[in-house]
Design a binder for these strands. Structure first.
Length: 891
RNA sequence: GGACUCAUAGCUCAGCUGGUUAGAGCGCUGCCCUCACAUGGCAGAGGUCGUAGGUUCAAGUCCUACUGAGUCCACCA
C-alpha cells in the first residue's frame, strides 16, 4: 500500500506529470475513424508574451473543456502555437538595439530579421513552457508558429486569392498612423480614449472683405497649415451667401474657398469647418468630392515638413503650440474652450495616432462579411454568453475595409513586386517572379511592407492543420466543398473557441470570414467569451500599474491546481483577483488529498477493485451514491452550457460537504464493513474523474496511487450517468438525518453540553427538532421513537462529530434509526407542503376577491374576464376546503 | 451620440423559465489539536435584494423611469 504524506506536495507532483504527459505524448491527437473529433484552437499567444492571469483563465477554460471531451471519448485536439505579433516583437528587438545605440535602419533589413529570428528562438518558447506548467493538455506535437514555412505559404496564398477576386486593393487613403512605430494601423488597432483637449476657434479672414472673418473650430490647430478649404452645410442660412467666397489661410497665406458639403453639422461650433484633406478622414472625403488639393504637412515621425513653412522640423505637439502662439499674436484666435474628445492611441505603444494620408493595401470586407454575419444571425455560430452576439452583429453590419499593410519588417512580406519600367502593374504572386509579365523587365522590387499580424491569425483554425497543403490547387470558391487533407477533414471545423471580448473584432470575426471564404464553412460552432481579470480594486492587471499577480508565482506558492480552481471559481463575469483567493483552491486540493489518504488507510485492496456502485442497505452509502449521480448530471449540463464556475461549485460542494463532511464522518465507525469501504472508494474514484478537468495534477497523482490502472486519468473515462442509482427516499431520509443532527449540534453548542449529559441533550434536541419540523406536534417524534423501541445512546462516543455519534448509536445499523424517521418526516413534509399550498390558495383567493370588489375593475373589465375570475375564485375556495380536510385527517 | 453589462450579507459573487424560510466562499464571533486534513471540524451572528413607480393572486426574478459603477462602438471638426 503506498503511503501518502499528509500534505499534497504540488511542486513535485506537477513537475512529474508535466513531464509524463509530454514524454508520453498523452495529448497528441490523430484522425481516428471510429472516434468523433473535438477540436479547440488556442488563441495563439504572442511570442513576446509571458503568462499573465488572462492567459491563466483562458487556458484553464480551454483545458477543462478539452479534458472533459477527451474523457468523454472524443479524439480531442487542442491546437497550440504562437503568434509572431509583428509590431510587438519588432518593438522588443528595437529596444534591444537601442541599448546598443542603433536603430533597425542602421543594421538593415536582413540583419534585423536575423536578430528577430534569433530572439524568437531564444525567448519565443517561454510562454509555451508556461502553458505546460498550467497543466494545459495541448497537442504539443502540433506546435505551430504563424511564420512557419507552411503557414507563411497559406498567408501568401490567401493574399493572392483575394487579390484575384478583387477583394484586395491598393490605394491612397487616410489611415491610422503611429508616428512612433512608423506604421499604418487598422481601425481596430487604434484605441479611442476620451482625452481632455481644447477646441480652438480660429478666425480666417476673407480675401476681399477686410476685417471680416469666418470662424472655424478645431482640436488639432496645427493641421490648419494643410487646409485647402472651409466647408459649411449647404442648408445653413448663415453661410449661404458666402459659399464660393475666398478666404486667406492665416500664417500660410494660401487662398482657400468656402465650399458646401452635407458632412458639415451646422450645430457644431460655428457651423464652419476647416478642411484638411490629408489629415482627417472626413476632410479627405470632402477633398475628393470637391477636388481639393491634398497637402501633407507631416513627416512619418509626425514632425512638421516643409509645407509647414516656418514651423518645419517641429514635432506635431510643439507645432500646435507654435501655431496657436502665432495666431494669438495675429489676433486670430476667437476663443479656446476645454473639450473632451476621443483620441486614437496605438494599441502597441499607446502613442497618439495621426490620421495620415498614405498608400496602403486594403481588404474589401463587405463581401467577406456577408456569410459571416449570416452564420451568427441564423445561429450556426453561437456566442456564450449570448449578449456578445449583438456586439458581433453590429460590427459586421458596419464593417469597413481593412488596412493590412504595415511599414515594419517582422511579418509576412507582401507578395507583390513592382516593375521598374511599368510601375502601374503590381505583380501579385505566391512565388518570386523572375520577370515582369508585361514588359519582361527583370528589374523587379518586392513591396517593402509586411502584412498585419491578424492577416495571418485569421487563418489559424485551418492553416494550422496544413491548409493549403495538398489542397493547394483544389480550392473551391466559398460555399462549396473544399478538398482537404486528412487532418483538415477530421478536425475542421473546430468546436469551441475561448477568448476575451477584446479579441472579437481583431480575431473572432475575421476567422469566421476566412473560414467561409476559404473553407466554405464556419471555423467553429461556439464562441465562449470570458471576463477580464482585474485586481481587487477592479483595475486591469498591468505591469505598469504594478498590480499584476504573476500566475507563475501563484503556481509556485499555491500550486497550478489551486490557480486553476480559484480562477474558474470566480469566472462568472469579470474577475477580481487577489492573492488570498488562491487559498481556497489550495485548501480544496489538500482536502481531496487527505480524503484519499483516509480511504487508502481504511480500505482493503480487494475492496478497491470495484467498477460499479455496490448494492448496499446502508443509508449513507445509498445517499452518497445518489448524490454523486445527481451532481454528475448537473455538472454535465453546466459544462456543456459553458457554465464552468457553476460546474466547479457543484463538484466542490459535493465532494467537501456531502462526501467528506457527512458521508466519510458517518462512515468512519463503520469502515470495517466491506460495502462501506467499497462505496467510499468507488465514490472517491468517480469524484477524481469528475474533478480531473479542473484540477488535473492532484487527481492524476491520486489516481496513480489509488488504482492499478496503467493509463493515466487524463486518458481514462468520464463517469457515466446512472439514473438507476437515484434513490429519492435515501436522499430524503438523509436530509432528515442531517437536519436532526444539526439541531442536536446546535443545542449542544449553545448549551455547552458535556458528553456525560448526553441523554437529556438528546431528548431536548429531539423535542426541539420536532418543534421545528412539526410545529404544534412536539410530542410526535419522541413518542414515535419510543413506540418503535428506539434507544438512544446514553453516551456520545468520544468523537468529534455528533453525526457519527448518532448513527453509531444503532450499533452500525443506521437503517433502524432512519426508517422511522423517514416515515415520520415524509408525513411532516407532506403536511408542510400542504399547508404551504393552502396558504398560497388562500392568498390567491383573497387577491381575486379584492379585485372583484374593485369598482373600476368591475365597471371597466369585459364580462368574460370577470366571469373567469369568479370561476377561478370558486375553484380556489373549493380546493382550499378539500386540502384542509385532507390535512385534518392526517393529524 | 449609440449599444451593452452590473447594482443581493462587511468583501467577492450564485440565485437559469416569477412561487415554501434569498445561498456560497472569504472575513467575523464562540467551542474543538479528535488516530485523513488546523490548508481542519462544529455551531453562530449578519440581508427591508440601488431608488421610485408599474404588471401579477405572488417580484431579488418581468416592465418603465431615475441614480450610481463599468465596458464597447461612433468621422462631430
Amino acid at each position: 500500500m503506498p503511503k501518502l504524506p499528509p500534505r499534497f506536495n504540488f511542486t513535485e507532483v506537477e513537475a512529474k506529470w508535466c513531464k509524463y504527459w509530454e514524454d508520453n505524448h498523452t495529448f497528441h491527437a490523430t484522425p481516428k475513424p471510429d472516434k468523433k473529433p473535438y477540436t479547440i484552437v488556442i488563441p495563439p499567444p504572442n511570442v513576446t508574451g509571458i503568462l499573465h492571469m488572462g492567459h491563466g483563465l483562458n487556458n484553464t477554460l480551454q483545458d477543462i473543456m478539452a479534458r472533459y471531451k477527451r474523457m468523454n471519448g472524443f479524439e480531442t485536439c487542442w491546437m497550440v502555437g504562437t503568434d509572431h505579433a509583428g509590431i510587438a516583437t519588432q518593438n522588443v528587438v528595437e529596444k534591444q538595439l537601442a541599448k546598443e545605440g542603433k536603430t533597425r535602419y542602421d543594421i538593415g533589413r536582413d540583419e534585423m530579421l536575423n536578430r528577430l529570428w534569433a530572439w524568437k528562438e531564444d525567448y519565443g518558447g517561454t510562454i509555451i513552457n508556461q502553458l505546460k506548467k498550467l497543466g494545459s493538455s495541448c497537442d504539443w506535437d502540433r506546435l505551430r508558429f504563424t511564420m512557419d514555412d507552411g503557414y507563411s505559404q497559406a498567408v501568401k496564398h490567401v493574399f493572392v486569392e483575394l487579390y484575384k477576386k478583387n477583394l484586395i486593393y491598393r490605394g491612397k487613403y487616410i489611415i491610422n498612423w503611429c508616428p512612433r512605430c512608423q506604421t499604418a494601423l487598422s481601425d481596430e488597432e487604434a484605441e479611442h480614449k476620451d482625452t481632455q483637449g481644447n477646441l480652438y476657434h480660429i478666425k480666417y479672414p476673407f480675401k476681399d472683405i477686410p476685417n471680416h472673418f469666418v470662424t472655424v473650430a478645431t482640436t488639432r490647430p496645427e493641421t490648419m497649415l494643410g487646409d485647402t478649404a472651409v466647408a459649411v452645410n449647404p442648408a445653413d442660412k448663415r453661410y449661404q451667401d458666402l459659399i464660393g467666397k475666398i478666404l486667406v489661410l492665416p500664417i500660410i497665406g494660401r487662398e482657400i474657398k468656402i465650399i458646401a458639403d452635407e458632412l458639415v453639422d451646422p450645430a457644431f461650433g460655428s457651423g464652419a469647418v476647416k478642411v484638411t484633406p490629408a489629415h482627417d478622414p472626413n476632410d479627405f472625403t470632402m477633398g475628393t468630392r470637391h477636388n481639393l488639393e491634398f497637402i501633407n504637412i507631416m513627416h512619418p515621425d509626425a514632425k512638421l515638413n516643409k509645407e509647414a513653412g516656418k514651423f518645419e522640423g517641429l514635432d506635431r505637439f510643439d507645432g500646435r503650440k507654435a501655431v496657436i502662439d502665432t495666431l494669438k499674436n495675429l489676433e486670430l484666435i476667437e476663443k479656446i474652450e476645454p473639450h473632451i474628445h476621443a483620441v486614437g492611441h496605438c494599441y502597441r505603444c499607446n502613442t497618439v495616432v495621426e490620421p495620415y494620408l498614405s498608400k496602403q493595401w486594403f481588404v474589401n470586407m463587405k463581401p467577406l462579411a456577408k456569410p459571416a454575419l449570416k452564420a451568427v444571425v441564423d445561429g450556426t455560430i453561437k456566442f456564450y454568453p449570448d449578449r456578445w452576439t449583438k456586439v458581433y452583429i453590429n460590427w459586421m453590419e458596419g464593417i469597413r475595409d481593412w488596412c493590412i499593410s504595415r511599414q515594419i519588417w517582422w511579418g509576412h512580406r507582401i507578395p507583390v513586386w513592382y516593375c521598374g519600367t511599368c510601375e502601374d502593374h503590381p505583380i501579385v504572386s505566391e512565388t518570386i517572379p523572375t520577370e515582369c509579365p508585361h514588359c519582361h523587365s527583370k528589374d523587379l522590387k518586392q513591396d517593402e511592407d509586411v502584412l498585419d499580424t491578424w492577416f495571418s491569425s485569421w487563418l489559424w483554425p485551418f492553416a494550422t492543420f496544413g491548409w493549403p497543403g495538398n489542397t493547394f490547387n483544389e480550392i473551391a470558391s466559398s460555399q462549396k466543398a473544399v478538398s482537404r487533407n486528412d487532418d483538415l477533414k477530421y478536425f475542421y471545423p473546430t468546436n469551441s473557441l475561448f477568448t476575451a471580448s477584446e479579441i472579437i473584432f481583431f480575431w473572432v470575426s475575421r476567422m469566421v470570414m476566412a473560414g467561409y471564404e476559404f473553407m466554405g464553412e464556419a471555423p467553429f460552432k461556439d464562441v465562449y467569451i470570458h471576463g477580464t481579470v482585474r485586481d481587487a480594486k477592479g483595475r486591469k492587471m498591468s505591469k505598469s500599474l504594478g498590480n499584476a499577480l504573476d500566475p507563475l508565482e501563484i503556481i509556485a506558492e499555491y500550486g497550478a491546481d489551486a490557480l486553476r480552481f480559484s480562477l474558474i471559481m470566480n469566472s462568472g463575469q469579470d474577475l477580481f483577483i487577489s492573492k488570498e483567493k488562491f487559498e481556497g483552491g489550495r485548501n480544496f486540493a489538500n482536502k481531496i488529498w487527505n480524503a484519499s489518504r483516509l480511504i487508502l488507510i481504511n480500505t482493503k485492496p480487494e475492496n478497491r477493485k470495484i467498477s460499479a456502485p455496490p448494492q448496499t442497505n446502508d443509508l449513507a452509502s445509498q445517499w452518497i451514491i445518489s448524490k454523486f449521480y445527481t451532481t454528475l448530471t448537473e455538472v454535465n449540463t453546466a459544462i456543456e452550457g459553458y457554465r464552468f464556475s457553476e460546474a466547479e461549485n457543484l463538484i466542490y460542494d459535493f465532494f467537501w460537504k456531502n462526501y467528506c463532511d457527512w458521508f466519510l464522518e458517518i462512515s468512519k465507525n463503520k469502515f470495517s464493513d466491506d460495502k462501506v469501504q467499497q462505496t467510499a472508494f468507488f465514490i472517491l474514484k468517480e469524484s477524481l474523474r469528475m474533478i480531473h478537468p479542473f484540477m488535473p495534477f492532484v487527481t492524476e497523482e491520486l489516481w496513480e496511487n489509488l488504482t492499478e490502472n496503467d493509463i493515466p486519468l487524463s486518458l481514462d473515462s468520464w463517469p457515466k450517468t446512472k439514473s438507476e442509482f437515484l434513490n429519492v427516499a435515501a436522499i430524503d431520509q438523509m436530509d432528515t438525518l442531517i437536519n436532526l443532527v444539526s439541531v442536536i449540534r446546535n443545542i449542544r453548542s449553545q448549551w455547552h453540553i458535556k458528553p456525560q449529559e448526553e441523554i437529556e441533550c438528546y431528548f431536548a434536541a429531539v423535542d426541539s427538532y420536532s418543534k421545528t419540523l412539526l410545529k404544534d406536534n412536539s410530542e410526535t417524534l419522541t413518542s414515535f421513537l419510543k413506540l418503535k423501541n428506539f434507544q438512544l445512546h446514553d453516551k456520545l462516543p468520544t468523537h468529534k462529530d455528533a453525526a457519527s455519534g448518532v448513527v453509531s448509536s444503532t450499533g452500525g445499523q443506521p437503517i433502524k434509526f432512519t426508517i422511522p424517521l423517514g416515515e415520520l418526516v415524509d408525513l411532516a413534509k407532506e403536511k408542510a407542503k400542504m399547508q404551504h399550498e393552502i396558504m398560497l390558495k388562500e392568498k390567491s383567493a383573497a387577491g381575486i376577491s379584492q379585485r372583484l370588489k374593485n369598482e373600476s375593475f368591475v365597471s371597466k373589465a369585459p364580462a368574460d374576464v370577470i366571469e373567469k375570475e369568479q370561476a377561478r375564485l370558486i375553484v380556489l375556495i373549493q380546493e382550499t376546503k378539500e386540502l384542509q380536510e385532507v390535512l385534518k385527517n392526517l393529524q
